[in-house]
Design a binder for these strands. Structure first.
Length: 429
RNA sequence: GGAGAGAUGCCGGAGUGGUUGAACGGGACGGUCUCGAAAACCGUUGUGCGCAUUAGCGUACCCAGGGUUCGAAUCCCUGUCUCUCCGCCA
């Protein structure tokens, strides 16, 4: 049973841990944990001593039988010891379950660079790139463009599944596919990634490993006949690829990129924000996942950010980068950048990517370690991931930024090879 | 979905109740030999937890979880996964 936060860290710095949890607007009973930890260690001490006695007695029984002596008295006595061991083990199991439950609810601790803050309003903009387009005509939003060009069909998506399940059609479907392929190709060919095509459903162990469970159970779709969750991000299936493994040190860093559809219930969200692509239940995303040595993880975090924004720069889509404050940081992240792309119609920034360093939080929960040479002590890797990128929000920015006064959309140069060398999307029937 | 077989260390593979954390072989690493290499020979070669934290000591782990027993990798039950055959199917 792998730990999540290191119990030793909590044992030695309880106040620091309490403060960190608070800064993330999370809860956790550190005092209860400390108490249980003490109980556990005391019990282990007693129980192991009993086990030692039992093992010694059993050896003597064997010896006695071999020599034809009577061992009945010893057997009776040992039986009692075994009974005690059983009781102690049950109690220990119970305590460890409690520790596990408490521990698994504790969020990751924020990195020292992360600004203290309450919510999204306290996030810090650290970069802005590209120029916001100014149109000398009335800019259409992505819904109007989608309808006018006959490339998106939210209405029929609602019919066949429900609202929030977009349908791409004709050149819209092709553009979506082009984006996915383009991003994958850049990551594979230029950013040093290995492509993974992962399952879109994951079991509870995996969901726990990356930190979706227990907190987000209600935000995910569950296929309950098989107790499998539809993945909210391929981070889940890709990171868990190496669950319960000890990786050879010379294999690090491991960089995987994966396309997947992503499924989110978005329970409780409604209103204007849910229009079109702004908030959907199913979207497409190309994800990047890194497994790295602990001392290198912040260097890779910066690089991951570059790899994600590289796509936007090549597509010439204006974006900004936010450093999330403690209060807006997700449960599992130690530090996170959000990348937001500009929507001319909404006149606001839309989150298209989150680039996170989880340090050893996911690695502990998923038990992913590395070892340099035989005999060396295994250590937890650091895991990072970033969307590179989510196509739904990107599609909004792309359509809106590249629109013309005729209501058509120019295809960005890099995507043209993926679109049969077309350079513009016009209405097709 | 039905019938059967199986799951042991980095790999192959033994082991059906008593010093077996695990034979044997391979690989890897260190050493001897060599100008160097190969071969040969010698040695090392898992993980968690607790105590000491320098060496170490103890305990648990042979897919997972229960059970039987003084004692289980070995026996019993349940689950998961893999393979073979049949059925169904994109």
């Amino acid at each position: 049973m792998p730990p999540m936060l290191d119990i030793k860290l909590i044992r030695e710095n309880p106040e620091k841990v309490k403060k960190a949890i608070e800064s993330k607007n999370e809860k956790g009973d550190v005092d209860k944990l400390l108490k249980l930890d003490k109980q556990r260690r005391d019990l282990i001490y007693i129980t192991e001593d009993l086990k030692k006695q039992r093992n010694e007695n059993s050896s003597q029984v064997a010896l006695a039988k071999k020599e034809g002596r009577d061992a009945q008295a010893l057997i009776v006595k040992t039986k009692e010891i075994s009974q005690q061991i059983k009781e102690h083990d049950e109690k220990l199991q119970q305590i460890e379950n409690e520790i596990y439950t408490e521990l698994s609810r504790l969020p990751n601790l924020p990195h020292g660079d992360v600004p203290i803050g309450k919510d999204a309003a306290d996030n810090v903009e650290v970069k802005r790139w590209g120029s916001i387009p100014e149109f000398d005509f009335k800019a259409l939003d992505h819904l109007q463009l989608g309808e006018r060009l006959n490339i998106l069909d939210f209405k029929r998506g609602g019919k066949v599944t429900g609202s929030g399940f977009p349908v791409y059609k004709g050149l819209g479907a092709r553009l979506e596919r082009a984006l996915i392929n383009y991003m994958l190709d850049i990551h594979i060919n230029e950013h040093g990634y290995t492509e993974i095509f992962p399952p879109f459903l994951a079991n509870r162990e995996s969901m726990f490993g990356t930190g979706q469970l227990p907190k987000l159970e209600n935000d995910m779709y569950l296929a309950d006949k098989d107790d499998l969750f539809l993945i909210p991000t391929s981070e889940v299936t890709v990171t868990n690829l190496h669950r319960d493994e000890i990786l050879p040190g010379d294999k690090l860093p491991i960089k995987y990129t994966a396309y997947s559809a992503c499924f989110r219930r978005e329970a409780g969200s409604y209103g204007k924000e849910t229009r079109g692509f702004l908030r959907v239940h199913q979207f497409n995303k190309v994800e990047m996942v890194n497994f790295v040595r602990p001392e290198e993880s912040y260097q890779f975090h910066e690089q991951l950010l570059k790899e994600a924004t590289d796509i936007l720069e090549r597509l010439n889509i204006p974006y900004r980068v936010l450093l999330l404050c403690t209060g807006d940081l997700s449960f599992a992240a130690a530090k996170c950048y959000d990348i937001e792309t500009w929507s001319p119609a909404e006149q606001k920034w839309l989150e298209a990517s989150s680039v996170s360093n989880f340090e050893d939080f996911q690695a502990r929960r998923a038990n992913i370690r590395f070892k340099d040479e035989q005999g060396a002590k295994p250590a937890f890797v650091h895991t990072l991931n970033g969307s590179g990128l989510a196509t739904s929000r990107l599609m909004v920015s792309l359509l809106e930024n590249y629109q013309t006064d005729e209501g058509t959309v120019i295809i960005p140069e890099p995507l043209r090879p993926y679109m049969g060398n077309m350079d513009i999307i016009k209405r097709s029937y």
